[in-house]
Design a binder for these strands. Structure first.
Lengths: 361, 361
DNA sequence: CTGAAAGCGCTAACAG
DNA sequence: CTGTTAGCGCTTTCAG
């Protein structure tokens, strides 16, 4: 629209017709252009952007004006990567952002980062490990540190990354790399106890993605606790960690029903329950169902869903704080992963005995 | 720089550094280190990374080996920003990533980006406009284009950005900037018709964030359609676009009930309904409630929630495709925003008349 | 295919 | 406070 209209009249501009329509055309203006236009030395322009105090107000004014006219924008990155000053950016790499679990993690990370004056750059890679590595490779050179969430990359690949930039692993433990994980075992134990205490001794664990470290931990926790408590544990899957995956699992579960079901995550649990209901089964009467993660809206589904909750916000915040410390030169204190506690949240989907008066909280 | 190493203080630690578990210590290796190690010229190393074909297989091998040993990593960004080759990254700026609406948008954007071999970098800024601008400023220099979702920045600030890099605005129309929006009017009209056809003629619109362009559009659509259809329209709010916001709104709504309620978004609608239920009211009997966005899990809350759905995936994909075209030099065709249709999804929360056979309990 | 050398845009060091 | 002059790490000529 007004791209044409802005035709500046006052223009002592030489032959170089400043710019075409919507910018991005005639090569981005450099610091030299601005300097020439403002009648100062390039270094002064540089200073004006990097160290505002060090340049006289008037000169700064003039430079800013010139920069505006030319549409100049400091190439912060080049400057910073070259100067090794740090870019004040942190990469958060995660494989599936559309999983609601990550919300609070993100929030926690962001708050902690903001406190320390860092910006979080998210690199998401729904797809393959390959994509994940590619995305990581792209952002790696421009951040001061890396937060990897539930990565599917191999341990050695992760270690490679950790060699290049301060790195913290979340939701997975990799030896040699600082890790922050949740204590799946504890929450799981509570869940199994909760079921067993209601006389449920036949429990199916519905597995999530095979490559997932978390799935391994959860399955192991279920199995071991089950053994300790004399419950019979079965395993189904793996299926996709989605509502659809849960639905599929429910279908095969029908052929060998158990009175208790623990799903790798909440989304699966929701799908599982819905499919049961569609087949005329009722939850928790026909089976008590529990998920993991405590995602948003879980209290609002019907029946409200029990879950094993991780302190996701704290994980994000803690990891970020530690990462910032590492960026500032701190050496990792311990070689063991930092473990944060998880807890069981009981709602209707697993409360068999005393059915409450249906108006939870 | 640090060649004068003997000078600085108390460092009795000589050559030991090499293998500290978490590395990231001794100065990132440069292309020169690799070159020396591989016994070639720096330019050859550069070529080996940038233009694989142009270097003999053997030399490439040697260089790769040397790079691995030293843990060298191409500083892609510096290289690319300098070379104006483009970084093959696109910034997706959005103010609140924890809103589930953005899932599909993100997915759409990512798929389209991947098709064109671009990576999406997410810059999230929960907070103020100031934070948003800051985050944008940080990533701007290093991306080839910008996707702004529901930005709260001023029109002129947005135009500023658009001057520097190809930019597309999503969920908001800014004159002079390519925009992709949904046709809120159409979906809203259907919703109001749906209510009126069930003899609901008293409708409350619960407003979302004041600064939101979308809220303005939705409110306007409700008001105008209401007028056209002879329904009485009321307005409540603004409240936060969250479950809590919806709960708060429900409380004040109690004092002046209407038989129809349309909330700025689904989260609010869920909170609204829950609060009604807690006060002994039933949905849709006491009020038909409709949200916007069609977020995940909506079919699973109780009662399942009606909503006005935008083709979010398509928005993300379309915008990204257009952006890539712009990056490649295409000129924006039209100055008017690209409008994608929205539609009404009727579920239990608004179905007053023929209560379905509710096999969904 | 490779090396030497001249940039690239920006910053730091050192006068004055 | 500002200009000059060396860099910074990487790329691009331009010869061989």
């Amino acid at each position: 629209m007004e791209e044409q209209s802005s035709a500046p009249a006052d223009d002592p501009v030489p032959s170089e017709a400043a710019q075409g329509p919507s910018a991005s055309k005639g090569r981005a203006p450099t610091i030299y252009d601005v300097a020439r236009r403002a009648g100062v030395a390039p270094s002064t322009v540089s200073r004006a952007f990097a160290r505002p105090g060090r340049v006289s107000f008037e000169t700064a004014e003039r430079i800013r004006a010139a920069a505006d006219e030319l549409g100049y924008r400091a190439r912060t990155i080049t400057r910073r990567t070259d100067a090794r000053e740090g870019t004040r950016m942190i990469a958060l790499v995660l494989s599936d952002i559309s999983n609601p679990v990550y919300f609070d993690l993100l929030r926690g990370a962001e708050e902690a980062a903001a406190d320390a004056d860092y910006t979080i750059v998210l690199a998401n890679s729904q797809e393959t490990v390959k994509k994940e590595q590619e995305a990581l490779g792209r952002v790696l050179p421009l951040v001061d540190g890396v937060l990897m969430v539930s990565s599917r990359m191999s341990d050695s690949a992760v270690r490679m990354t950790a060699k290049q930039k301060p790195t913290i692993m979340l939701n997975r433990a990799v030896s040699g790399v600082v890790s922050v994980v949740t204590d799946n075992a504890m929450g799981t134990r509570r869940a199994v106890e909760h079921l067993v205490s209601q006389n449920i001794r036949d429990i199916t664990y519905v597995a999530g993605p095979e490559a997932s470290w978390t799935d391994g931990m959860r399955w192991r926790a279920v199995r071991e606790t089950g053994a300790a408590l004399h419950a019979r544990i079965h395993r189904l899957g793996p299926v996709a960690p989605t509502i659809a995956g849960g639905r599929a699992a429910a279908l095969s579960w029908m052929e060998h029903r158990t009175s208790g079901v623990i799903c790798y995550n909440d989304l699966m649990a929701v799908g599982f329950v819905r499919t049961m209901q569609e087949h005329g089964l009722s939850v928790p009467r026909d089976a008590a169902v529990i998920g993991y993660d405590n995602i948003m809206l879980l209290p609002y589904v019907s029946p409200s869903m029990s879950t094993i909750a991780a302190p996701v916000h704290a994980i994000g915040a803690t990891a970020t704080k530690n990462l910032v410390a590492m960026i500032r030169g701190a050496q990792p204190t311990s070689s063991r992963p930092l473990v944060l506690p998880s807890k069981l949240v009981v709602r209707q989907s697993s409360r068999v005995l005393e059915t409450p008066t249906l108006r939870r909280r």
